[in-house]
Write a protein that binds this DNA or RNA. Structure first.
Lengths: 228, 228
DNA sequence: ATTTGACAAGACGATCGGTCTAATAAACCT
DNA sequence: AGGTTTATTAGACCGATCGTCTTGTCAAAT
């Protein structure tokens, strides 16, 4: 509707916009740096200028690319969610690996990702979640939706494991995925606080053992009303 | 050594300090409101003035009672830790209840505590943990120590359950307590994000089922090096 | 060359952050 | 009472931050 037929368009006049899809176009740099800084410090603690400086983008440009700090924050969430969804798919859809190994692979990757930055960076979603009280309302829905999306992807992986007979037939994979992300965010938080991976390991081990247990461990809760 | 014989002291000169042990002496009010506001918004997002206003303490007084915002924050952690430790003991040492019921009681209490404020307030420790990158270093050790303390109290309760035969003999209660607090902080975060208690319920149920499982679920990790 | 629109530079003012100094209040002492 | 000592408060201070805006430069189309 709004940008249809961009191909046969009679070519707009004036300076054409930079190809902002280039991975180091200013706009993309701002998003990348923004994610890096906010995963470490959160939203309220960081001023736009710090991001500008770090991304080497002139201050005058910020409000050319983004309408406000809030709008920037929302785009940051989207960018992070997209990046992370790709990552999840990369691990969870790797048909060459057994489903539960895919989960283990993801966990190992996340672990080494935290190690790479000295356990100083956490999860953007978890970070902003904690700040909810100080954040503009639109953030809430967005963050909650992102987590539900990750849970859905995780649940698919668990279903695959179930079909492969690696977790019990009667396990409720959706609830298990929900449990996983509740606890995993806690583990990331803890690892960041302690600057060591122990929490990640403890939670991951516990979870994997738990889903393989013969006895039913998660009582399926009424997912019915579990909607945004 | 330092404040010995305060009874027979020859009475100091000058205006005597207000009795700051009174629960609504300015200093105590500042700590109370500080906890309330920071559990909602975090540290960096909140200015001292907001706390002063809300506590009805004049701005000039702040640096009479506390050396800086940072010093105030540290005291806040202590106050919260003390408050919470009392709460834990109250539930976990209730000899009239079966050990696992004590855990359930604590969970129910925390749940209704969150409900009371519309799921807008989380856990001070979790909140500040997320902000680590933006917080002065001293906070880290303090927060980590608090969590270890809570874990130790929880482990005692689990040991009692073990002795009562309600959880398997070979369960590693320390590791289980560790697992609990990793995930519980995640659940509080999630509940705050979604403004609903579901995450608390899901995690609590899963955990309780898990610790009762006959199969060993948590592989005891090397707790050896697990020191501040 | 000139137009057009994409982008950059950096000042701006309002506001708010944490901190500090000077004033006031409340006891005590002689 | 009048002066001394200490507790508490009022409000100034200065630097930072946020979002905006004016001005300038650049690249392509005409």
């Amino acid at each position: 509707m709004n940008r249809a037929a961009s191909v046969s368009e009679p070519r707009r006049r004036g300076r054409p916009p930079k190809d902002q899809s280039q991975p180091n176009a200013p706009r993309a740099r701002l998003l990348r740096t923004g994610v890096a800084i906010l995963t470490e410090k959160g939203f309220s603690a960081v001023g736009v200028e710090e991001i500008l400086d770090s991304a080497d983008v002139p201050k005058g440009s910020f409000y050319h690319y983004f309408g406000s700090k809030e709008a920037f924050g929302l785009e940051l969430i989207d960018a992070y969610a997209a990046y992370f969804a790709r990552k999840l798919d990369r691990w969870f859809d790797d048909a060459a690996r057994a489903p539960l190994d895919r989960l283990r692979d993801f966990i190992a990757d996340a672990r080494s990702g935290m190690a790479r930055y000295g356990y100083r960076r956490g999860c953007l979603v978890g970070n902003l979640g904690q700040e909810m009280g100080a954040l503009p309302e639109p953030f809430r829905k967005r963050l909650a939706a992102v987590l539900r999306d990750w849970e859905a992807r995780t649940a698919r992986c668990l279903h695959a494991a179930q079909q492969a007979g690696h977790i019990p037939k009667d396990a409720d994979c959706d609830s298990l995925a929900h449990f996983f992300w509740i606890g995993w965010e806690g583990a990331v938080l803890r690892a960041k606080l302690e600057r060591r991976p122990d929490a990640l390991d403890v939670f991951a081990r516990g979870f994997i053992a738990m889903i393989q247990a013969k006895e039913r461990v998660i009582v399926p809760t009424s997912i019915d009303e579990y909607r945004g």
